[in-house]
Amino acid sequence: MGRIKKQRKHQQGSQTTLGHRGIDFKKTHGQHILRNPRVADTIIAKAGLKSTDTVLEVGPGTGNLTVKILERCKKLVAYEIDPRMIVEVYKRVQSTPVESKLQVIQGDVLKHAIPYFDICVANTPYQISSPLVFRLLAHRPMFRAAVLMFQREFAMRLIAKPGDPLYCRLSVNVQLLARVSHLMKVSRNNFRPPPKVESSVVRIEPRNPPPDISFEEWDGLLRLCFQRKHRMLRAIFTQKKVLKMLEEKRKTAKALSNGGVKQSVESIMRLGDSMNIDTDVAFQNAATMNEDLEMDPGAENGSADQMEVEFAPKRKGGKRKDGGIENPMKKQLEQVLDETDFATLRASQMTIDDFRKLLSALHLKGFRFS
């Protein structure tokens, strides 16, 4: 009897992963198929498709969104890793008026050159959320908009503003390059198999022209500031290890140049690789979530003096360890932070304009971050 119960339990568990026409969905590919037609209709309505549009779709799965998109566009280019899904999608449009509009490319969208498209509409595989966003933002020529389904916590990070708990380096980098808005929430029960998390749909519209900035320098500054986003900037920049790093970069730095479009595009794509998040683990692990939000003892009460004590040169016998000689680089950094009024601010409070002002002021003093 015990064996029969175990066998039935195992069979029931395996059946929950079966979807359209008995296909076994693979979690490794992030296959959570949107099965609610009303949600699909709403997504397409909010996308604002035109009859002249070329649409990009990533991970069409069994084609529930695909067939609806084809009814409203000129052409649809889809990227799909799983050959079983490609067969399924083509079966659904075979011998229909929209069959000629569909092109499915087998492979990883992150590893292929993406052709021209006007708009991207996709139920995004969650494990490629971050690199996909930046790959799209690096695409040239620029597209009109992307309407994408993400894990809700990731979507909330994309739209987070200064002071929000989820405001982070991802928020600043994406909002520098695009306007992002939240369109709708989608319950996990609208998918087969249901994911462990809730989802949201966002609209991303790239800023055209893109900001005139060195993205490697920009992200280098953000990496430093968001290591402890609740810590005052003075405390961050006066750490010995940070001073040493900036000194080394200053010695090796060459004259900055805009680098042209190619360098900018490559830099944007690298942003996504550096911020890729394993959503199946990171957002469900409370410790990982809280690591980014951890408050510093000194930052919690807002005391700049306490923060300075932590990083002040150690004294021995009443004398400074450095012999009483003040670090000129530290003095320059403190001068810049005081002049820009950012010394007592924290990254969690700063706007994009604040970061641009800070980067410009530090560049004028010869500081480099890439």
Score class of each variant (00 low, 15 high):
Gln127Pro: 03
Tyr116Asn: 06
Arg144His: 12
Arg135Thr: 10
Pro162Glu: 05
Asp278Gly: 11
Ile277Leu: 08
Cys120Asn: 01
Asn36Leu: 14
Lys254Tyr: 04
Leu224Trp: 01
Lys27Trp: 05
Phe117Pro: 10
Gln127Val: 02
Glu217Phe: 12
Ile81Leu: 13
Gln151His: 11
Gly298Met: 11
Thr28Lys: 12
Glu198Ala: 04
Ala146Leu: 01
Val39His: 01
Arg228Gly: 09
Glu80Phe: 13
Ala286Trp: 13
Gly272Trp: 00
Pro37Met: 10
Leu364Trp: 00
Cys168Lys: 06
Gln227Cys: 01
Met275Glu: 00
Tyr79Gln: 07
Ser171His: 08
Val77Ala: 07
Leu358Arg: 13
His10Gly: 13
Gly163Ser: 06
Gln11Val: 05
Ile81Trp: 09
Gly163Lys: 04
Asp41Glu: 12
Thr124Val: 14
Arg188Leu: 13
Ser95Ile: 08
Val109Phe: 02
Met329Phe: 13
Ala45Leu: 04
Ala304Met: 15
Lys9Leu: 15
Lys50Asp: 02
Asn190Ile: 00
Glu88Gly: 02
Lys185Trp: 03
Lys50Ser: 06
Arg21Asn: 15
Thr279Pro: 07
Lys5Ser: 08
Leu221Ile: 01
Glu291Pro: 00
Asp341Lys: 07
Asp108Gly: 11
Val180His: 06
Ser100Cys: 04
Ser257His: 09
Ser199His: 00
